[in-house]
Amino acid sequence: MKFIVQWNGQPTAQQSAVERFMKTGGALPPDGVKLLGRWHSIGELSGFAIVESDNTAPMAAWVLQWGDLFTFRVAPALSDEELGAALGAYQAGK
């Protein structure tokens, strides 16, 4: 299953976030989480990633690595095709 992972940091965390990112290269997710892409906002401590996982436990471990600097929002994500199939099933059941 795919997930959208969004993060936001406070301005007071900027220096620590920069140092950790440069040291770790952004700390790739652990085994069990495949990073499909990651994007960062310009001029603020925020961004999002698209990941794929069948298990939320390694996802929780990954975001906890950064939890002292950022808040996270993790939500399931559907492609257009997946959403279309779900909407079609919903309409058929009405």
Score class of each variant (00 low, 15 high):
Met59Phe: 10
Asn55Pro: 06
Met22Asp: 10
Phe72Gln: 00
Gly84Cys: 09
Val63Gln: 02
Lys34Glu: 13
Asn55Gly: 06
Ala27Leu: 04
Gly67Glu: 01
Ser79Pro: 00
Lys94Cys: 07
Leu69Ser: 04
Asp31Ile: 10
Val18His: 09
Ala89Trp: 08
Leu28Gln: 14
Gly26Pro: 00
Gln15Gly: 10
Trp62Phe: 06
Asn55Thr: 08
Gly9Gln: 04
Gly84Val: 08
Lys2Met: 13
Ile4Met: 08
Gly93Leu: 11
Val63Phe: 01
Leu45Glu: 02
Ser16Thr: 14
Met59Ser: 13
Ala60Asp: 14
Leu64Gln: 07
Arg20Cys: 11
Gln15Val: 11
Pro58Gly: 04
Ala89Glu: 13
Ala92Asp: 10
Ala60Gly: 15
Leu36Ala: 05
Gly32Tyr: 12
Lys23Ile: 06
Ala61Met: 07
Gly43Cys: 09
Ala77Glu: 00
Gly67Phe: 01
Glu19Asp: 10
Phe48Cys: 07
Gln15Glu: 14
Thr56Leu: 15
Lys94Arg: 12
Pro29Gly: 05
Phe70Met: 00
Phe72Val: 00
Ser79Gly: 00
Ala85Asp: 12
Gly84Arg: 14
Ala61Cys: 07
Gly84Gln: 13
Gly47Thr: 03
Leu35Lys: 02
Glu81Lys: 05
Tyr90Phe: 12
Thr24Gly: 01
Arg20Gln: 15
Glu82Pro: 05
Gly67Val: 01
Leu87Asn: 07
Phe21Leu: 03
Ala49Asn: 13
Glu44Pro: 04
Gly67Leu: 01
Ala92Ser: 10
Ala86Trp: 05
Ala49Cys: 14
Gly37Pro: 03
Gly9Ala: 03
Met1Ala: 13
Met59Pro: 11
Gln6Phe: 06
Gly47Lys: 01
Ala92Pro: 05
Arg73Ser: 12
His40Gln: 15
Met22Thr: 09
Ala17Leu: 01
Ile42Cys: 12
Leu87Ser: 09
Gly25Asn: 03
Arg20Asp: 10
Ala61Phe: 08
Ile42Val: 15
Thr71Ile: 04
Leu83Lys: 04
Gly25Val: 01
Asp68Glu: 13
Gln65Phe: 14
Pro30Arg: 13
Phe48Pro: 01
Ala86Ile: 09
Ala85His: 11
Ala49Trp: 13
Trp66Tyr: 05
Ala13Tyr: 06
Trp39Cys: 08
Ser41Trp: 07
Thr12Lys: 12
Glu44Ile: 06
Ala77Leu: 00
Ile50Pro: 02
Lys23Thr: 14
Ala61Asn: 09
Ala57Ser: 13
Gly25Cys: 00
Ala57Val: 15
Ile50Phe: 06
Glu19Ala: 12
Val74Ser: 05
Met22Ile: 08
Ile50Tyr: 04
Phe3Arg: 03
Lys23Glu: 15
Met1Cys: 08
Val33Ile: 03
Ser46Leu: 02
Val74Glu: 05
Ala60Pro: 07
Trp39Pro: 08
Asp31Lys: 15
Ala57Thr: 14
Pro11Asp: 09
Asn55Asp: 15
Leu69Asn: 02
Phe21Lys: 00
Arg73Thr: 12
